[in-house]
Amino acid sequence: MEAKPETEKKEKNWEPKILAFLCRWCSYAGADLTGSSRISYPANVRILRVPCSGRVNPLFILKTLRSGMDGILVSGCHPGDCHYTAGNYNARRKFAILSRLLEYVGIDPRRVQFSWVSASERDKFAKVVSAVVADVKALGPNELFQLPDFGQMTKGPTSPDP
């Protein structure tokens, strides 16, 4: 099978990598609807499905930053719409404090963003992703956690095989 490496042009201009944690019921379904409506948005975002925004441990965000991702989006159901009634309310408290503490230690809040996107808000999802990508692009690469340290040994996959 001949396949040409089409990924080369990536190296030319730096493009931010964004990881998006989307709740299964609202935002993930919203992202699906954005797709079936063929509304395009920047390709910088990688989506990770979680059952609920309440599942997102603030430490996931630290872990993601430490792993070198340039930006993070966490998106869940609008207040009152949570499939599990209160997951997004609990999450909102955690994100509120995390957001402020990250800022205080010098991590621009635009790098870690939050949104409510319902299963029907296809335009909003595309807009949110575009906005986050633009913000992170303006901030530049996440060099915060790539300062000289003990090198790759602390950065690669750490979870052993089952």
Partner: peptide, 15 residues
């Protein structure tokens, strides 16, 4: 839904 339908650039989408 979250890749081929929302991106136009073949290289970007493949990556």
């Amino acid at each position: 839904e979250q890749c081929s339908w929302v991106h136009k650039d073949r290289a970007e989408a493949t990556l």
